[in-house]
């Protein structure tokens, strides 16, 4: 695990050999100017290694989707960004439109919550799956063969027939498989999955996750998995970042997030969610409601909802420190996980 606090210096020569799929360093985002400026993200550092699965977890307004989208250069209208975003060696914030288009076409793909929003309803599935390949110069016949193979591998029955069908002829789960097939058709370095299974039934979710994992492993694709579901993140991710009010609160190895949360917010989330396994335990709500960065208090953003907060939490944004298997922005992690 990287230490979040120190921006990593990288030697240029061997960067290509060991470069990350995604590196977001101290990214801050704001819209508007002067007194009317609204901050959205502050000092967000997120890294996804090659072939790694990394979770980005948080509630509404945490900035998890904004962070993921920034990797494709998809910033809110009029947003000003500072920091650095690099995907497969491309400096995204400095890139021109053509470079970004090329990046989205070949190096980085995205899967959204609603597959119907990602597909043009009046175009056939076959067109959707071959357009990325055709744009890279693959001959039509080869592209069609590749699309057929992809549909077969994501478990669509009668793939040849499916190529000729329209999105409305598929269920949500089947359509999300098609979108995943399309997203991985170019064998990208990075897959951004923004709540890809939230709209699906729980049994379908398990199948789609299994598919994502298999495809990702086969291609060595790094995946940034954005979700509000802590259980899901801990189940499939190598590492997890927990975001709150536009900042990263904790970075942890996937499984140890459950056994040893180091931030009061992470622990609060775990205690607030009812569980289906083990002894039936009382749930403990976190007081107040989730905040966006613009409405969060100074110092630690979580301090107005935190049971451990003291006066010192208001003085400055807590620096990241290592505690157990976590890197955490809290002054008293030892009181969260002794």
């Amino acid at each position: 695990m990287t230490v979040l606090a120190n921006g990593r210096e990288r030697a240029g020569e061997d960067a290509a050999a060991q470069r990350d799929a995604l590196s977001v360093e101290r990214l801050s985002l704001a819209v508007g100017h002067g007194d009317a400026a609204v901050p959205l993200l502050a000092d967000v550092t997120v890294r996804v290694g090659r072939g790694e699965t990394v979770g980005l977890v948080g509630e509404s307004g945490s900035g998890k989707s904004l962070t993921a989208r920034s990797a494709l250069g998809l910033l809110p209208r009029g947003a000003r960004a500072t920091g650095r975003v690099e995907v497969a060696g491309v400096d995204v914030l400095a890139a021109d439109r053509r470079t970004l288009r090329e990046l989205r076409r070949t190096r980085a793909s995205m899967v959204f919550q609603d597959p119907r929003a990602a597909l043009n309803p009046v175009r056939r599935i076959g067109d959707y799956l071959t357009e990325g390949l055709r744009a890279r110069g693959t001959p039509a016949r080869d592209a069609a063969a590749r699309a057929l193979d992809l549909l077969d591998r994501v478990g669509i029955r009668d793939p040849a027939g499916a190529l000729r069908r329209y999105p409305h002829e598929f269920s949500g789960g089947m359509l999300q498989r098609v979108v995943i097939a399309g997203a991985l058709s170019t064998e990208p370095d990075l897959l951004l999955a923004d709540e890809p299974t939230t709209a699906l039934d729980v049994t379908t979710q398990a199948e789609v996750i299994g598919l994502l994992r298999r495809m990702q492993r086969a291609h060595g694709t790094g995946m940034l998995f954005v979700t509000h579901d802590l259980d899901l993140a801990a189940a499939i991710c190598d590492r997890v970042y927990v975001m709150y009010a536009g900042r990263v609160m904790e970075e942890s190895a996937g499984a140890s997030l459950f056994t040893a949360p180091a931030h009061p917010y992470t622990r609060g989330l775990l205690e607030a969610g009812p569980s289906v396994r083990g002894e039936k335990a009382a749930i403990r709500p976190i007081r107040g409601r989730p905040r966006a960065l613009a409405e969060a208090p100074g110092g630690c953003s979580f301090r107005d909802r935190c049971p451990l907060a003291g006066d010192d939490c208001a003085e400055a944004v807590p620096a990241y420190r290592t505690h157990g298997a976590s890197v955490v922005a809290c002054l008293r992690p030892e009181r969260v996980a002794p």
Partner: peptide
């Protein structure tokens, strides 16, 4: 939740993510 009797209930339960999530078991349930 502890002793599901119907295979569908079992599938529902095994589909819920957990640290020891077994996607192969979900496929078997299905």
């Amino acid at each position: 939740l502890r002793e599901p009797r119907h295979p569908y209930t079992r599938l529902l339960l095994d589909s819920i993510p957990s640290p020891d999530w077994d996607l192969d078991r979900v496929a078997r349930d299905r």
